[in-house]
């Protein structure tokens, strides 16, 4: 099924990303070994010039990852009509063993890319590029990840066969099955709601606190990072445990993918876009607060961290607001 336009586009994006990272990697090694801003040697000048090119290249790759993530989920949802038994993206992703790993790898790549972009931006703002070495170390770590994404996606798409009978979301997110997804599905709505609002509320408060404190506290920054990751998972669990039920107005349908479908007015995008943006921003806020101790970044890093924390707070708030409105507007009654 490799001849689907969206699949070709995804593979093109993944292949191009890997190719660019592969070209950048030898340069990264050279830079890590010889980078010395104080020196005026010819090699240093050449390195300085080349950093512009490779920073641009990796920024393009990271932007591409953000687009690919969206395209991948969208495409999985569209492909579900091709498989017997599939009703939404879950069925398409379940069509072979590479489906879900490919999605997870894509998500990891997304968060990695977002963090890298934040570091890159901070580094470019400082006069002496203090984070260049770190940036290129991260780039070296990124290349294998990009290779994994391409490998998993290629295997997933090349092995797709239309006559495979897959399972639909009803069986993966049922309350009886023996998986994490089903454990989450089986959570009592009242308990799930309290965990959901506590975690997200906590993350929002922490982010606002860090933002108000102009991002100066290292600990508050790290707390925002950790809380964002925790809130991200709590949010996903909440969507599975109760938000989806209210959207479908059905007490047993827990699928977090069907809410992306036109039948439900694409409401899922209203939830996931702010959630992912907020989680990525919160994570980056945490990472950037680590650099506040460096003399050249003493003012810039907290500034950037605070701004990202503000974005994270706004994103999480938007997500909670959206989810709450969807729950309140629903005709389903779960809790008397």
């Amino acid at each position: 099924m490799i001849f689907q336009p969206a699949i070709i586009a995804l593979l093109l994006a993944a292949g191009l990303s890997l190719a660019m990272l592969a070209v950048a990697s030898p340069f990264a090694l050279q830079l890590i070994r010889h980078w010395d801003l104080g020196s005026g040697s010819e090699r240093q000048l050449r390195l300085e010039r080349l950093t512009y090119l490779f920073s641009m290249m990796v920024a393009l790759v990271c932007g591409l990852q953000v687009l690919s993530t969206l395209l991948f989920v969208f495409n999985a949802d569209k492909m579900s009509v091709m498989f017997v038994g599939a009703m939404c993206a879950v069925g398409a992703l379940n069509a072979n063993v590479y489906g879900f790993p490919a999605l997870y790898a894509q998500l990891v790549a997304f968060f990695f890319a977002a963090t890298w972009l934040a570091i890159n931006r901070l580094d470019n703002q400082a006069r002496d590029y203090p984070l260049t070495r770190l940036k290129y170390r991260l780039l070296l770590a990124y290349a294998p990840l990009a290779a994994a994404v391409l490998y998993l996606q290629f295997n997933y798409f090349i092995r797709l066969e239309a006559d495979v009978i897959t399972s639909c979301c009803g069986s993966l997110f049922s309350e009886e099955a023996d998986t994490v997804a089903s454990e989450v599905s089986a959570l009592a709505p009242a308990r799930a709601m309290s965990v959901f609002y506590a975690m997200l509320g906590g993350a929002i408060l922490l982010a606002v606190w860090h933002w108000k404190g102009a991002g100066r506290g290292l600990w508050s920054g790290l707390a925002v990072g950790t809380a964002s990751v925790a809130a991200f998972f709590a949010a996903l669990a909440g969507v599975v445990a109760f938000v989806s039920l209210y959207i479908y107005e059905h007490p047993n349908h827990h699928c977090p993918f069907c809410i992306l479908k036109p039948e439900y007015g694409y409401q899922g995008y209203l939830l996931y876009l702010p959630l992912f943006a907020a989680a990525a921003a919160g994570l980056a806020a945490g990472v950037l607060s680590l650099f506040g101790g460096r003399p050249n970044l003493a003012t810039l890093a907290p500034q950037a961290s605070a701004r990202l924390a503000g974005i994270a707070a706004a994103g999480f708030a938007l997500f909670v607001l959206g989810a709450s409105v969807m729950v309140l507007r629903s005709n389903l009654i779960l809790i008397e």
Binding site: P5, A6, I8, A9, L10, L12, A13, L16, M20, Y52, L53, M56, M57, L60, L64, L67, L70, L71, F74, N75, K78
Partner: peptide, 25 residues
């Protein structure tokens, strides 16, 4: 269709951007 526009974007804008990277630099 949104997916189609996104796909089209990858097919046209991406090659252009990638090809002009080195010359721009």
């Amino acid at each position: 269709d949104g997916l189609q526009v996104a796909t089209l974007f990858v097919f046209t804008v991406l090659p252009y951007t990638a090809a002009t990277l080195v010359p721009i630099w």
